[in-house]
Nucleic acid binder design. Structure first.
Lengths: 210, 210, 210, 210
DNA sequence: CATGAATGAGAATTCATTCAT
DNA sequence: CATGAATGAATTCTCATTCAT
């Protein structure tokens, strides 16, 4: 039961990643799993439900690990930050499919429920990154937290795309260090200049769902 | 003739932006243009061809403007950079549709030709940003150029998504300044530390298509 | 065994009445009975078999009661007639479901066997009503018996539909009296005029199955 | 355009009559018309829409004729009544299919819109028959009008079923006379006894939609 | 006997594309 | 050039029935 759901999710992900949601048929997913079309409908209500389950499955997995690292008392905030980022980049090797699918389907509107869920993932990421910055750099960077989280998110996504879409093999440890060092640079510079762009009120709608 | 092609492209973009490529039918595009379905096929070979033309039309428009600014002899390199970035952010107001479509369909594989074209747009952007950095900051930042372009691209996209997907109205002048200042910070920091991540050889396949 | 068959039949009837045969799934019937889908197939060969059994079960029940009344030696023919009609109308309260299903699925062809059975029920009703008329009004109304049975059947069905489909609550005693009085009127009038429409030979095919 | 819609409706009716709505597939209707499945969807929105159109087409036809007869100034009320009834019975020969389908699908719930339409047809018939009685027998039969219309409707349907389901060929002129004579009998008897069963208030919900 | 997962034929519906007018 | 009716392959989803446990 649970095994089969997982099998279906993992096969669906591969296909969604390779061909996109709309170009993947239920028949193809079933074929990939070696089951009949009807069987798939014993486990999922609809194709949209498969998509939503795929999103929940992988993002749940990643969130769980991220939180596990966060709650490890033996780590300093900076180490937590470092490990979380590295974990995420590293997962690209194992879950390349999911990330690829995520990139491909990012913001492709399927249905309301899926849209809301994608929205909540984006929101969760910004919140999570914001909390990392607070923990690592202290309260005085509060005014810059939203910009920092936003810029870091963009930078991570951009490098991820090289890894995924161009099938490059990068040294994730080195990349983690590189990106965190850049954030260090930006934190220092922002402290000096006091500049910020995003106000908390700008994202109030956005973040309240996170 | 050309007028009708343009009409079709502009209507198609609106629909692709609002509903995504797969969820927009030829019939809807024709209806939006006030023409018959069959007429559309006098101007475009297929639905994929409409998509490709849309991509070419808008990216051509943006490239043309970017190059026009670049070739204005009265501007310093920094002014050129500033204006190009501001122009792109500003176009969101006018061409929100295209950008939204671009975000939505980014990397959604439709067919080989469209994939290749999307690839070449990404490549062009990295090349263009790289050249900006070279022009503004001089030859000595050559080792950092690819990372800078990559990071800046990610940051731009991330802020764009707030503007587009969450329908925020931001002050684009202020945002342009903010982002360019951040790049200044990073350039200075990289010069000091000498760190870089991307090697030119990493992107050789990628860039040769640009 | 017999208990479970009955449970299934009674639940099936409710669903067929509410939603119609084709819109009721085996799963729904099983759910309503609190049993597994497979279990149902230990008691019935197919969905059609459930339908046929439903028809046989209820028409058997009604016929049994009608005959019980008929064979009560303490009643005059007119009393028998009156009680049978009243019983049938009254059963609407208790077996509204069956009647409703009967109205809904009346003459909806499912398969040959069910068709034949529905045919035989109709035939049985005409025969039964004919015999009532013979018993109550004597041999001299023989020429009018088929028309009387036909008209009475139509009138009963029409009033029944008000009760069932429009969810009206009527006084069945009053209605029974009213209808039988009308048949009295018609019998008297037909005796005077000698008019008849149906010949026994018209219905010979029809009645031989009854 | 109109021709093709009519062709589809007429073929659909034959199939619905022979096999019932649920057992007739869109493919079969298309095949019967010698067109492709997709073509059918250029004329009708859905299978339900075909059904609704069928009902509207034929009931519109019958109503039109009934009203044409009603408005013929050269006819006495009794002649109008007579001709309308005869017309309806006679149409069975030509539109046997529709009547058969009507009998089969009578009260089979398909969707809300179709249900409402069937309801309105029933209502229309009762209203029409009531008006006939008023016109033919005068104001003093007002108290009996609803019962008379109900009984007549039941009687007509019952004889119609012989004609249709049992494929009998009856003399419709003779049947019309026979039934109208019976109504004469009932009118006379009711006038004497003063009995009535249905109150106008019983049918107020029912009739207001007619 | 009971179960319920697996099946797969079949249904309604959509839509890019063609082509005769 | 413009049209829009016709097409039919493809897609999602349903459900009666089977059968291994």
């Amino acid at each position: 039961m649970i095994d089969k759901k997982t099998t279906i999710i993992e096969n669906a992900i591969k296909l969604f990643a390779a061909k996109g949601y709309h170009s993947t048929s239920i028949q193809e997913i079933a074929d990939a799993c070696g089951i009949a079309k009807g069987t798939l409908y014993n486990y999922f209500e609809s194709k949209d439900d498969v998509m939503l389950s795929v999103l929940k499955y992988y993002s749940g997995m990643i969130m769980a690990e991220v939180e596990k690292i966060a709650n490890d008392p033996s780590l300093t905030p900076k180490e937590v930050f470092w490990r979380q980022i590295h974990y995420q980049l590293d997962e690209c090797v194992k879950h390349r499919d999911f990330i690829e699918m995520h990139i491909r389907e990012y913001a492709v509107p399927v249905n309301e429920e899926i849209n809301d869920f994608l929205f909540s993932i984006r929101s969760y990421r910004i919140q999570w990154l914001s909390n990392c910055f607070r923990a690592v750099y202290g309260k005085e960077i509060e005014p810059f937290v939203l910009d920092l989280a936003t810029m870091m998110n963009g930078i991570l996504r951009e490098y991820l795309e090289y890894i995924i879409l161009d099938k490059k093999q990068f040294d994730t440890i080195k990349l983690t260090k590189y990106i965190i060092n850049r954030m260090d640079n930006l934190v220092k510079a922002l402290r000096n200049s006091g500049e910020y762009f995003l106000e908390h009120s700008d994202l109030v709608d956005f973040l309240k769902n996170g």
